[in-house]
């Protein structure tokens, strides 16, 4: 906007420069935190900053990032989705059973699994829109229902013995190279970019674009900023909220499919409390739980902060419980910094 002519009677002065800076600061504070983590871990752990490990981090972060993208939409409308972890399990069960018991093609089954998540999102949207339930309550109920269904139909047992192709998304990689080692045995050179990471990256870009540059995206922000004013501007608020919850459900399901595919086993108990990771990544990335503020780029950064922390702490031999404590502290710190900055304005 700097090179465009300015409206007469207004001065493009310090004010807009300041606003611009504040905006950049907001974005880059989280990013700077991520970079700092990378630097610190690289310095202390020798195996941290290697191609293998960085790809590993990406893979580990993918499921959080996917669910985070979805829930960002819901949170910007001022809502919340607690059913993500259960939908993750349920969608895996749907895909697994379709492959195992009905002998469906793996990819068709994956698609069906994703659709089941979209459907749960639709139900969440219906409860919020028509029963006028607070999103917290509606999705809390759905959290229990979806988890219960997943456990019921599988008898709480995992589904093993799935075809190898079931693991393609979770384990496959693109661009793997091989080389001969000193003894003339073929070994992996470049491990390749995991399919799941590519999927996540593509979807992140597409949904970043949807949120930042389309009417739907604008309406999502508008609903979160002032729902009634949005309705009185002739916008179908019901439709907008349906979209948000369906997108969220779809991403939760995708995240489930990636998780199960990685294990080549369906675990109906997977993803308990996983929604909290997704919400945490969103919040660390600067999206406000009050609605109206936030974005996909922040969520991706937030997801990577969590991913890098887990990976680095693991590598450093930090116990799992201690990791939880540290990540909890990071969430509190990140949001405090945000609050402090807003207050200063």
């Amino acid at each position: 906007m700097a090179n465009e002519p300015l409206p007469a009677g207004t001065a493009m002065d310090d004010e807009s420069a300041r606003l611009l800076n504040a905006d950049l600061l907001q974005k880059f504070a989280a990013l700077a935190g991520l970079v700092a983590l990378l630097v610190v871990f690289s310095l202390i752990a020798r195996n941290f900053f290697t191609v293998d490990n960085l790809i590993n981090i990406c893979r580990q972060t993918t499921t959080i990032a996917l669910a985070g993208i979805g829930v960002t939409f819901v949170i910007i409308t001022g809502g919340i989705d607690l059913s993500i972890g259960s939908v993750l399990a349920m969608s895996g069960v749907v895909a697994g059973m379709l492959v195992k018991d009905w002998e469906w093609n793996v990819y068709v089954a994956f698609f069906a699994g994703a659709l089941s998540g979209v459907f749960v999102g639709f139900l969440n949207g219906a409860m919020v829109n028509f029963l006028r339930l607070p999103p917290f309550i509606a999705t809390l109920g759905m959290m229990m229902i979806a988890r219960g269904l997943a456990l019921l139909v599988t008898n709480a047992r995992s589904i093993p013995g799935l075809p190898e192709s079931f693991g393609d998304i979770g384990n496959g990689a693109l661009g793997t190279t091989y080389r001969l080692n000193a003894r003339g045995v073929e070994v992996i050179g470049f491990p390749g970019i995991p399919h799941a990471v590519i999927l996540m990256a593509v979807l992140a870009v597409v949904f970043y674009y949807i949120l930042s540059s389309t009417k739907l995206g604008r309406y999502i922000y508008a609903v979160g900023s002032n729902e009634e004013a949005t309705r009185l501007s002739g916008i179908n608020v019901v439709k907008v909220k349906f979209f948000a919850y369906m997108i969220c459900g779809g991403f939760a399901a995708l995240s489930g499919i990636v998780t199960m595919s990685r294990l080549v086993t369906v675990q109906p108990t997977a993803g308990v409390a996983f929604e909290m990771d997704a919400i945490a990544s969103t919040v660390i990335g600067g999206t406000s739980l009050m609605g109206g503020v936030g974005g996909i780029s922040g969520t991706i950064i937030g997801a990577f902060i969590i991913g890098v922390l887990r990976n680095g702490l693991n590598m450093f031999g930090v116990q799992g419980f201690v990791q939880q404590i540290i990540i909890g502290a990071v969430i509190i710190l990140a949001v405090s910094v945000d609050q402090f900055r807003n207050r200063k304005k």
Binding site: T214, K215, R218, Y219, Y221, A222, S225, N226, E228, A229, T230, L232, S233, G234, I235, G292, V293
Partner: peptide
């Protein structure tokens, strides 16, 4: 404030809110 504006959004967003079709 309650019914007319999305206070957290920019002037531009508010002006075009009721007629985004025209600019998309």
């Amino acid at each position: 404030k309650a019914y007319g504006l999305a206070l957290n959004m920019r002037i531009t967003d508010n002006i075009t809110m009721a007629y985004l079709d025209e600019v998309s």
